Simulated scan of single mutants.
Amino acid sequence: MSVWRVSLTAAFIWVAQAGTATDNDLSALYVERLDGSEVKFTLEDLDALEQVGFSTSTVWTDGINHFSGVSILNLLEHAEAEGSTLRMVALNDYSIEMPVEELDEKAPIVASRMNGDTMSIREKGPFWVIYPFDSDPEFASEINRSRSVWQLSRLVLVK
């Protein structure tokens, strides 16, 4: 009986691993171009790009926090991804689209750190689209709050 349990357990583990072998890496960010090709960015890849940071309050965190990461515009340029509409997708499949023309070098950013520390999935990471809400009333809009995708997994050019 114990040999049967060990064999069944080993088979279950093998099937579970095989099932996740093709899944996306949860600790990476994927940028999908219009032609369907994609570029994978690890935290190390993102850290190698020009970093942007700002301190701001959010409706999801306490007090003022410092967020740092890469501007989405810079990230798309680095991935050689062009288009007019960007869909931002979270790990839970929440998604929202925005016009690429509304991106600039300073906002929004894909934050990889809050107060200098990487963010776990539980802490809205590993990547969070964030705006400097306190720096300009334009950034504090409801639409920008809805575009502040935490647990970001993909940036997809759809048009």
Rank of each mutant, 00 (worst) to 15 (best):
S2V: 14
R5Y: 14
V6K: 15
S7Y: 12
S7G: 14
L8T: 12
T9P: 03
F12Q: 11
T20V: 15
T20R: 15
L26W: 15
L29Y: 00
Y30W: 07
S37E: 07
V39N: 02
D45T: 06
D47F: 05
E50Y: 09
T61F: 10
G63L: 01
I64A: 08
N65S: 04
N65P: 02
F67D: 02
S68M: 01
S71V: 03
L73E: 02
N74P: 06
L75F: 06
A81M: 02
N92S: 11
D93C: 02
Y94W: 12
Y94K: 09
I96E: 08
E97D: 14
M98P: 05
M98N: 04
M98H: 08
A107G: 07
I109N: 05
I109L: 10
R113N: 07
D117N: 12
I121M: 14
I121A: 14
R122T: 07
G125W: 08
W128H: 05
I130R: 05
P132N: 07
P132H: 10
P132Y: 05
F133R: 00
F133N: 05
F133H: 00
F139Y: 15
A140Q: 08
S141W: 09
E142L: 15
N144E: 09
N144A: 11
R145F: 15
S146W: 14
R147Y: 10
S148C: 11
S153G: 10
S153F: 03
R154N: 07
L157D: 07
